[in-house]
Design a protein around this nucleic acid. Structure first.
Lengths: 340, 340
DNA sequence: AACGTCTATTACAACGTTGTAATGGATTGA
DNA sequence: TCAATCCATTACAACGTTGTAATAGACGTT
C-alpha cells in the first residue's frame, strides 16, 4: 500500500538507489543501458518521487500562494482560475487563501505558517494600504497585485487604472453623455482602485471643460452587487440630473443596472452605464454591460512568471519590477454606439 | 535569513533539540521550568516547525485537494470559498485543481503527482460517470461530491436531487403553472444532476396527472449562461406553448431569463422560471430568481469533516458513508407567489 | 544503605531525497 | 606494461523532524 521509493526501484533494477536518483535528475554520466533498465523499473512500480523528501532536501515546495479577498467575488474567482491554469503549465500548484479584505488576515497571510508550504506568494490586498508598504518587506518571494499599495519594496503587477478609467469616461463622453455619475467611490482615497479610477474620471471630464460635481459621485463600501444597488438608489434620491453612470467595477454596475431596470429607466437611452473588470457575467446582463477589460489573463500570466522567476533567482535577485497590463473598452449594449 | 530549527531553539534554551520537540508536541514528561525556558526561546526566534520535515516524518501534509470543473462557474467558486474557509478552521490547506469537466483530466486528478502533496481529495466529477465508479478505488482518502457517480466505493456527499427537483416543480405547479418546460436536460442520462432532476420533474407532473411532453424538454451541453440563452431560443422556436421554465441550474436560468427579457416576455406573469443552486447572483437578476438552495455550506462542511475523519482514521477505516444535505426552495420574483 | 520506581531528558535511528566525494573499471597513450 | 584519464556507479552525509529506547537523577521503601 505504501508508495515505492528509490530503494524499491533500485532493487528491481539491480542498481544502487543513487543511480536511480541520477536517472531521474538527468545526471550527465548514466550509461544508456542502465537508464533503460531503471526507467523500466520506474514504470513498472509507478514510482513518483516523494515531494516532502524533495522539499526537505531542496528547500522548495513547488507551490505558490494566492491571497485574495474572496472567491465569491467573480473577479477573484476568474483570476484564480487563470492563475491555477497557468501555474499548472509551469508545474506549480496554487494554494488559495481568502483574507476577506481584512487587514489583520492579510498580515496573517504574509506572516502565517502557510508560508512554510509555498515558495512565494501572489498577494492581492484590499485592507492594507500604502502606509503598510514596509510590511511587504518579507523574507520570501512576493508579488503584489492590484492598486492598494504602490510604494512596496516588491514586484508589482497592475493595470493602468487612471488611463483605463479615463478611457471609460471618454467612451461615455464620446457617446454624447455630459452628466456622468460615479458609483463606488471611496472619498479621501488617493491610490487604490477607487481613488485611481475616480481621478481618471475627473481628468477626462475636466479635459472637456466639464466641472467636477461631487453630487454626482457616490461612495460605496465593498464593491458587491448589493452595494451597487444601494448606491444607485442613493443617487436617484439625490434628485440630481445624470445621463450616464460609471460604476467603478462590474458588480456595482450590475447591482445598479437592476435598480435602473426596476425604476423603468431605460438603459442606455435614458442612462448609459459602463463597468470595470469584464467579468463573465457582464456579457449576460440585460442589457449586456459595456466595461473595461483589464487584461486579467495577462495579469495572471505575468504575475506567475515574475514570481517563479524570482523564486528561481535565489540570491542574485533581479531588481524590483513594476508591470502594467494593457486594457481595452468592451462595447456592449449598456452604452450607445459611439457617435462622435 | 534561513529559518531557525529545533537545534537553534535548543541551543538558545540550553537543552537538547529533542526536548524542544517534546515541548512542541505536548509530550507528557516535560518539567514546567523547562517548558517555560523553551517556549521563551521559541518565541524569541519566531520558530516554526518545518512542514516538509514533518511531512516526511509523519506521512501527512496537512493539505487536501479540491478537484472541480472550473472556478469560473459560480457554483464551484462559492463551494471552494466555503471549503477553504472551513478547512482553515480545521488547520488544513486546500489545493484546488480544475479539471474542466474533462474525463481525462479528472482521472489525472485521481492519479496525478499532486496526490503526493495532499492527504486526501474532495472530488467533484463531471466528465466521469457511474461506469467509472471502479476508478475511484484509489489508495488514499477520497470523498466524492455531486451526482455523477453513485456506486463508487467511497464516501459520497450529495443532495436529494430528485426530491428537490420535484419540490421545485411542485412550486411551479402550486403557482398554477401547467405547461412547464425544462432546459438543460441531458437526454439518456439517468443519474447525474440532469438525469435526477429531470426525473424529479417528471414525478411531480405525473403525480398531478400531467403527461410528460418531450417537446417541452430541451437539451443543453455544459450548464453555462450562454447555453441557457441558446436553449431558451430553441424552445421559443419550437413553437410549443409553455407557462413556466424549470432550468436545471441557475446559470441556465439566468441565460434563459435574458432571452425572455429580450423578447419582451414578462416574467413571471407570462412565463415563470425557477433555477437550481442559489448562486449569489440569483438575488440580483431582474427579476430575482426563485431557486433551490442545495445547502452548499452544509455540503462543504460535511465533506471536509468526512474527509478529515477518514484521513485521521488510518487503517481502522469506518464504513463508506452516503450523506445528503437538506435543501429548500427560495421564493423570489421569477415565480408568482404561491396561490394554492 | 541499597534497591526499585518514577520523572525528565537525551541519544539514536529513520522518513526519502540529493550533493559531494570516493571507488572501481574501462580506455588511452607512452 | 603501467600510469593517466575518463566514465559509470556507489558510499556517505545531510535536510529537520518525531518515535523508541536508553540514561540520569530524584524520591520513597525496606
Amino acid at each position: 500500500m505504501t508508495s515505492p521509493t528509490l530503494h524499491d526501484v533500485a532493487k528491481l533494477a539491480g542498481v544502487s538507489f543513487k543511480t536511480v536518483s541520477n536517472v531521474i535528475n538527468d545526471h550527465p554520466h548514466v550509461a544508456e543501458a542502465t537508464r533503460i533498465k531503471v526507467e523500466a523499473a520506474i514504470k513498472q512500480l509507478d514510482y513518483r518521487p516523494n515531494r516532502s523528501a524533495r522539499s526537505l532536501r531542496s528547500g522548495r515546495t513547488g507551490a505558490i500562494g494566492l491571497a485574495v479577498p474572496e472567491l465569491s467575488l467573480s473577479y477573484f474567482a476568474e483570476l484564480a482560475d487563470e492563475v491555477i491554469s497557468y501555474a499548472e503549465q509551469r508545474d506549480t500548484v496554487v494554494l488559495i487563501e481568502q483574507t476577506g479584505g481584512d487587514p489583520e488576515r492579510e498580515l496573517e497571510a504574509l506572516r502565517g505558517s502557510r508560508r512554510q508550504m509555498t515558495d512565494g506568494l501572489l498577494f492581492s490586498p484590499l485592507g492594507l494600504g500604502n502606509d503598510d508598504a514596509d510590511k511587504l518587506d518579507v523574507g520570501f518571494p512576493l508579488v503584489l497585485l492590484g492598486e492598494r499599495i504602490f510604494d512596496g519594496p516588491v514586484d508589482h503587477i497592475t493595470m493602468e487604472n487612471v488611463d483605463a478609467a479615463r478611457a471609460a469616461t471618454d467612451h461615455l463622453l464620446d457617446a454624447g453623455c455630459r452628466r456622468i455619475a460615479v458609483i463606488g467611490a471611496h472619498t479621501g482615497e488617493v491610490i487604490g482602485s477607487a481613488g485611481l479610477r475616480l481621478s481618471g474620471y475627473r481628468a477626462a471630464i475636466e479635459a472637456r471643460g466639464i466641472p467636477y460635481d461631487e453630487r454626482l459621485v457616490v461612495d460605496a463600501g465593498p464593491w458587491h452587487r448589493v452595494n451597487g444597488a444601494e448606491t444607485m438608489r442613493t443617487l436617484l434620491e439625490r434628485d440630481v440630473d445624470f445621463d450616464a453612470v460609471f460604476a467603478l467595477n462590474d458588480e456595482l454596475a450590475l447591482g445598479a443596472l437592476r435598480v435602473l431596470n426596476e425604476r423603468g429607466i431605460r438603459v442606455p437611452e435614458q442612462v448609459a452605464i459602463i463597468g470595470f473588470d469584464d467579468v463573465d457575467e457582464a456579457q449576460y446582463s440585460l442589457p449586456s454591460l459595456t466595461t473595461v477589460d483589464p487584461g486579467r489573463r495577462e495579469i495572471a500570466h505575468i504575475a506567475v512568471d515574475v514570481l517563479l522567476e524570482r523564486i528561481g533567482a535565489g540570491s542574485d535577485a533581479p531588481p524590483k519590477r513594476e508591470v502594467r497590463s494593457g486594457f481595452r473598452i468592451v462595447q456592449r449594449e449598456s452604452t450607445p454606439a459611439v457617435t462622435r
